[in-house]
Simulated scan of single mutants.
Amino acid sequence: MVTQRAIPLHRRIRAAIEAKILSGEWPPGTRIPTEAELAATYDCARMTVNKALTDLAADGLIERRRKSGSVVKRPVLQSAVLDIHDLKAEVEAAGFTYRYTIATRKIRQATRADCERLQLAKPVPVLALSCLHLADDRPFCWEDRLISLAAVPQAQDATFIHQSPGAWLIGEVPWSAAEHRISAVSADASLAALELAPGTPCLAIERRTWDAEQPVTHVRLIYPGDAHALVARFAPSKAG
């Protein structure tokens, strides 16, 4: 039997901190005691504590900051690339409380840029929306969306009080085809709601959907790059 004393001290310190994080006692954003404080608690050298914290950072449980110390890191959330996902379901699946706010809402005749985004043959009335999605009241995703009112006239009167525009569309409008485009962008003034420093890497997902041949919506979702990942599951091709 392996006794507690036989386990190296840095691993015991790591396990103790990990247990507090995984149990929720130390939620994301919690400041970890300093190396000096932990060394005093465990009556050991700071080098031993440093090794424990380095291991926790390597496993993505904490973030080490040069001047402000270490904090519990938010888990990296995942989106399915080959599916139209519900942001609320993503956030709640990770154990966070979901909320969203509508920043702007405007009905207009489609501009040239709108026609390009929706791939419209000619201008039609569109609903332009921008929303901020939050996880535990922290910015999670910025949404910039166009909805063709020629395809979805009922969107003009939708309040989106109880459902975000994306969730409302999933339940309201059939779609027959979708296109995803994934890219990297840098945070700028247009993404101020995400509370990121200018130049911070972000992940951009653009999605366009159709009902038969009729464009329905185009949405651009922007995530902080260090807090989100994309996954896709697929099988080998049977061709040949």
Score class of each variant (00 low, 15 high):
L87N: 02
D86E: 14
P75A: 12
K88E: 07
S68V: 10
V81W: 04
Q78H: 09
P75N: 12
L61G: 08
A57V: 00
A89Q: 09
A89L: 08
E90I: 03
K73C: 13
R65T: 09
V81G: 06
K88R: 13
L53T: 02
G60W: 11
E63I: 10
L77S: 15
P75I: 06
V72E: 09
E90R: 00
L61I: 11
A80V: 13
E90G: 01
R66G: 04
R65P: 07
A89W: 05
G69H: 06
R64C: 02
A80W: 10
V81Y: 06
I84R: 09
L61M: 15
S68R: 11
T54M: 04
H85M: 12
P75L: 11
T54P: 01
A52G: 03
P75Y: 11
T54F: 05
R65S: 14
V76T: 14
D83C: 10
A52E: 00
T54V: 04
V49M: 07
D83W: 09
K67W: 13
A89M: 07
A80P: 09
D83F: 12
D55C: 03
Q78C: 10
E90F: 00
R66D: 04
E63S: 10
P75K: 07
V76K: 05
K51Q: 06
S70F: 08
L77P: 14
D59Q: 15
A58V: 07
R74W: 08
P75D: 12
K73R: 15
K73I: 07
V76M: 13
V81D: 04
G60V: 08
K51V: 05
D83A: 13
I84D: 11
Q78G: 06
K88T: 04
D83H: 14
S70M: 11
A89T: 08
A57I: 02
D59F: 10
P75V: 08
L56Y: 03
V76E: 05
V49Q: 07
L87H: 04
R66N: 06
L56W: 00
A89I: 07
D55Y: 03
K51R: 11
V71Y: 07
R64H: 00
I62N: 02
D55W: 01
Q78T: 10
